[in-house]
Amino acid sequence: MDTSMLFILLQAPLYLGTLRLMVPITLPAIGEIITERSGVVNIGLEGIIMLGALASVYVGYFTGSLLLALLAGILAGVCVGILHGIISVYLGGDQIIVGVGVNVFAYGLGVITLYLSWGTFANSPLIPDSARVPDLHGISPFVVLTFMSGVTAWYLLERTSIGLRLKAVGENPKAADAAGINVFRTRFVATVIGAVFAALGGTFLGLDWLASYTRDISAGRGFIALAMVVFSKWNPILAILSGLLFGFFFALSLTIPSGIIPDQLVWSLPYAATLLVAAGFFTKTRAPAAIGKPYRRE
């Protein structure tokens, strides 16, 4: 067993698998970090991943155009982001409830679309090659996009005035308001951006990895992304690292012949680790102070 483990650890597929598995959890996590830093929680990531995948696969399948398919995926994210933003930011609605609703809705819509468009309940046929995302030197451009997004998001939050204002809104909206910052607009935009990232995660699944839509396409990745946000302490760079870590374990569980380590244990790791981190057992974490609270001017 020792030698076989070693053998697995030396294989390239494990590491390529890590890169591929990290993308659909890390992109949504990065987006959610931006959203949450502004004080809004979107637990509808799972649903947005599905809708992003669904829209891109649908358009890709019927038009054969990669560009249109990508745009469709992004548009799905924009739409949900706007919906979530209007309800939770401008109307002061309950952020958690909206997110739950989006998740339920998206799953249902996915299956219905599968059935109505392709007559199946399980998975769509493959999209035409013309709509698939081509690999660059054997690596998906989405991998590059993920790394770049993380770095850019970090740069945005830590180095730009937009980032400073966004964080101020998430920490103390009253103070931000008193400093002349538009709390509502900032949160709204952050919510839409976060949703687009989640949709991009779905687009990767639909146009790149699977090249099709399956009913359980998201498979809990939206929730893993939520866990990663806490695990990486709301830092996009750490989100990349935790994406690599979680991706590695998932890749390992796929590579190791079953029976050596129970899969359930590997799958549990991100959630258990996040729970422990959130409870402050390893390091101190702190969520943005105003997270989840609708802002109302007196």
């Binding site: 180095r159 730009t160 005035s161 937009i162 400073l164 204002r165 964080k167 101020a168 920490e171 103390n172 009253k174 103070a175 931000a176 008193a178 400093a179 002349g180 910052i181 702190r286 102070a289």
Partner: peptide, 27 residues
Amino acid sequence: HFMLVPVFTALDNIILGAEPRKKGFLI
């Protein structure tokens, strides 16, 4: 009741909303 962001540095609190910038958007 002070209108400050507790986790920000003193400098960031002072310039918040009126940050000097370079290249348009960098602080």
